[in-house]
Design a protein around this nucleic acid. Sequence first.
DNA 1: CCCCCTTTGAAGACG
DNA 2: CGTCTTCAAAGGGGG
Length: 359
Amino acid sequence: MPQLNGGDGDDLGANDELIAFKDEGEQEEKRNVSAERDLDDVKSSLVNESETNSSSDSEADRRPKPNPDLESRARHSQLRQQDGALFQPSPYVGYPFFMIPDLGNLCSPYLTNGALTPSARTSNSVPVVQHPHMTHLHPLLSYSPEAFSPQRASPGFSPDTGKRTGMSRTPHAACYPVSPGGMAQIPHPLGWLLVSSGFSSRLVPTPQSSIPHPAIVPTGVKQEPGCSSQKSMGDAQQEKEDEKKPHIKKPLNAFMLYMREERPKVVAQCKVKESATINQILGQRWHSLSKEEQAKYYELARKERLLHSKLYPGWSARDNYGKKKKRKRTKSETQLEGETMFRFCDTVHFLLTRLVKDL
DNA sequence: CCCCCTTTGAAGACG
DNA sequence: CGTCTTCAAAGGGGG
């Protein structure tokens, strides 16, 4: 991950944390070690080539293709409404669009941020200051989405061919372009302030701000009542106290961050809105990503977790347990049901066989 | 109105 | 330590 170490001024990236990230990579490395070595050779040569040439084609060709069945199925469900235009796999798939969103104004509480004009945001020559917190909780939302959308592509980008002529080859530079010293205090668009000192940084609300951190969901607005099945009847007081606590959401993992970025593209391409279908496609595309491309999201997720832990030191994922409306059935329950059904069918089969014999 | 579906990954619980 | 469970996002579908 060449971009990750250099130039991002990662004051969150302590060595031990990098080890943890390395472990994540090693999990995948176990899948195909020998092939990975070959891949590394190919990748390193690609990196060298890409300094002067576009490497999208070779990179895209090397990658396994997402299952066309799923995407075509998703598309077919919409063909009736369309002019029959053939579905084309995303020209962006796998392209390091990290931090370059195509979200429209959807799912972006931060898009009101007008810190940069669209032209400034799309210009390669203009240094884009990416707020580290936004790289974490809303890593993909701080740029103008329309500038990179297929419909309104920037002049240097041709979405139809998937070729890139004028795009920055170092999207991470747009991510973490500022050194820790230079990032001493950057106001968050919603009033949060990154305070950086030495090797640590943290977010604090600005004095004027009454806007909560995005990970905090006011419990009074749409409070998810605790799962009653997991609480005893005498815990009403405890339940009330829990309701008073703000609901701090889990930090997004790498795949969730990837989904956030890619979902609008899939929706636009497949004209499907059902999230279950979209998520299936995204899952396939996730697996089709190269290791390097996934590494960007793992790194982003790691920073998100770190920042989350700094923001909410006492928070535990356990705090959110049982806050869903209804507990999902456990695997063992499903398995048990399956086994019961199997036994039932087996018994029926046995009885029928005997009955036939008797007849 | 509210849960389900569907995906991956992180973290906690549990045997 | 390995396995299982829960929850993060999203929004249409269905009860």
